[in-house]
Amino acid sequence: MKSFAYQKPASAQAAVGMVDPMSAAGQGGAFLAGGTTVLDLMKLHVLTPDSLTDVKTLLPAGIEERDGALYVGAGTTMAAAAEHPAFRDRAPALSDALWKAASPQLRNVATLGGNVLQRTRCPYFRDVASACNKREPGSGCAATEGVNRLLAVLGTSEDCIATYAGDWANALILFDTQVEVTGPEGDRTIAFEDLHTLPGDTPAVETTLGDADLITGYLIDLPDWAWRSVYTKVRDRESYAFAVASAAVALDMEEDTIREARIGLGGVATVPWRARAAEDYLAGKTLTEETGLEAGRIAFADARGWGHNDFKIPLGQQTILRGLMEAAALTREGTQ
């Protein structure tokens, strides 16, 4: 780890005034909340900020009703949120995506503000000796022809196929969510769906946040049928593993007919991914294996495999099918 200055301002507002903008190459300053991403990458010299501004205790923590929506403080830990009745009962996908991620120890410190900004696990991003346009713009992408089993098939470019590694964002994207941000210019909100940006030819840019912007909370507009939601996570092992593929599914159903379906995908895309075309297809359909799989096909119609990860296309389709079936099987009490 490179030497850095630790600073702990008195408020989130003060924090955004203190942090030096961090460039794409990892210079400048960074915020520290749970630290589970930033310290990990600093140990690898993937990030080498010259200051860390500790905002962990400055961020609002907790979940509450606010103006008919659910307000979630960015300082809420993954563990606390996973257990919160507002998630567990009203939108189980938001809870499942949390307790199925990382480990209890990590969830005890990682915050929801940092969680959506979790960095990719692409091995070439994490290795400073490898070419990586995300870490070092213009150096190339070692992954497209490399060992890419765990990398993305949706939203990729020739310059970057790094998978978005998080889980919760793939569920959050199902709902109409506003991200509350404080920055040097003051407070503002961003639609969650506009937060992450596709890699394109600038993979080092991952979000629409400014360098000194700080996420302080989320306002989630949960439909009253969000109780019928699941987060189906396919992993090589049963726990403590990143998704090979995942599907967040919420269904509004009348008998066997889908009024509205919402599908978020993880493990397969470069950003938290909303499968809108598949959702449109499902509206008004009866859910069967055939229609579920067709939704999967539609969701992956533009997918591109890179060799080792070709299987993620059929796997992603099957994961959508499974997520739809599991969501449909839920009853109001949340039991199958």
Partner: peptide, 23 residues
């Protein structure tokens, strides 16, 4: 930082004693 308590940003905004960084 307990659940449901929001003593974060707003309450602290006025207390703007900026701690200076240290290595």
């Amino acid at each position: 930082a307990a659940l449901g308590n929001f003593a974060g940003g707003a309450a602290q905004a006025q207390a703007d004693a900026q701690a200076t960084g240290s290595t």
